[in-house]
Design a protein around this nucleic acid. Structure first.
Lengths: 240, 240
DNA sequence: CCATTTCTCAAACAATCGCTTGAATGGATG
DNA sequence: CATCCATTCAAGCGATTGTTTGAGAAATGG
């Protein structure tokens, strides 16, 4: 009766239903389809944040940020929690990270101009050696490597690679001398499109120290089952 | 989008560069952010198609379909190949399937109204038993199950589950009696949002035969490394 | 050469989106 | 209770999107 027919003679409630269904899928993708919202997801992948914190990180007005967050919430990508006067947003599910990483990876692979855009933001990366998760895990076993976490202290406290030393971006120069001179340095931060590690490695290079950059950020590391240490229960995740 | 120069203008500040970079990621997601384009991706996940074939499958004009395909191509999600007067489009990379499946999965998990939309398109599924990949693989070893492929013959020929019998949607009723009466039937088609298997199972049920539906479609099956058989070289598989 | 098939492009429209501004909401605090 | 604050809402603008229509371009066959 109603097998394969796609003709117009049944102006197809079924066709309308299919449209509605796929519009549903489209809504999810469309929610990520703005650069600012993509940025918000990247920020929230690091952990829960208040509206104002998100607004500061993405350099947008609070009203606009709130608007974007509500759009993301309507599409089911983020969830919120009220604490006093603050509303904290977080990714609604691990699958949001899956989607975001898949989109980011596809962009890196397929978008020709992305390399140029990344260079414009991060600077020329051709001089920066990378190290991947597997190699670092192997190195960690031998103990011949120093890992530095170049993120704000709050994020370090919320979870960092085992044994990593917290070197917040603004303190690189002071802490530089305390790094053991006889071991290789590996720096990591939020992920492959985060400036902190690149900046730190360039700073180190300017002081004659060579360092490599961990390809993965903390969200990717965690997702692949990499070990994570959490600092003393005292300091709150986002230093509020 | 953002009132930022879209052209090859070099952004001046780091913030502008970051905006441009994330707008790049956003473009990928935005390409999937229309229901019609999502549908196109779902179609192309099944294999290469000409513009006209895509247009027919999604019930849109050729011009509009061509327009959407170009949008997808500009975002790097699909690639094309000319053969005579026909232009064949295909997914540009396996990562496109990753993104699409991630988006679809997230929608299923997070979008509250999606169940209702799916029911409206596919009909009530509560009576339809599912079987997943792992269980089917185990059952196939014991050989106590008949697998039917309820897709158009061309897609069957391009690749199907090992031992599956081709039962095109319009031939269910004729082929029904040829199915062994003493073994359980498992039907599969393009994926979880494809009507063919559901329709077939309802038809079978109306004839007193019970059948289960494979949760995965062929793209998902293949992606997870499931074995696939290709028919005689007659009808060409998707070129690749 | 012309005619046909198949696809793409261009113009146009209503609808939607991103961002801003200014006012309103809803908890917390005194 | 009034006051403060973080957040959200509402209105408005310019820009972008999805679709249609009709014309243009590329390969094929006579």
């Amino acid at each position: 009766m109603v097998p394969v027919d796609q003709e117009a003679d049944v102006p197809s409630t079924r066709r309308d239903a299919k449209n509605a269904l796929f519009d549903g899928f489209g809504r999810i993708a469309a929610a990520l389809g703005s650069g600012r919202r993509a940025e918000i997801v990247e920020v929230l992948a690091q952990g829960e944040r208040s509206v104002e914190q998100v607004a500061t990180e993405i350099d947008q007005s609070v009203a606009n940020t709130s608007h974007h967050l509500r759009t993301l919430a309507r599409a089911g990508l983020v969830a919120s929690r009220r604490e006093g006067t603050h509303v904290h947003y977080r990714l609604a599910s691990d699958k949001v990270l899956e989607v975001w990483l898949a989109v980011r990876g596809l962009a890196a692979e397929q978008l020709a101009e992305l390399d140029a855009l990344a260079d414009a933001y991060l600077g020329d990366r051709s001089q920066i050696d990378e190290i991947d998760r597997e190699e670092l895990l192997a190195r960690l076993e031998h103990g011949d490597v120093v890992v530095i976490d170049v993120r704000p202290t709050g994020e370090y406290a919320a979870g960092h690679l085992p044994g990593a030393i917290s070197v917040p971006p603004e303190e690189i120069d002071e802490l530089l001398d305390e790094l053991p001179a006889d071991r290789e340095i590996v720096a990591y931060c939020r992920g492959p499109y985060c400036v902190y590690a690149d900046d730190a490695i360039r700073r180190l290079a300017a002081h004659g120290r060579s360092a490599r950059r961990l390809r993965e950020g903390v969200p990717e590391w965690r997702r692949l089952g990499g070990p994570v240490e959490v600092s003393a229960p005292g300091p709150r995740p986002d230093g509020g």
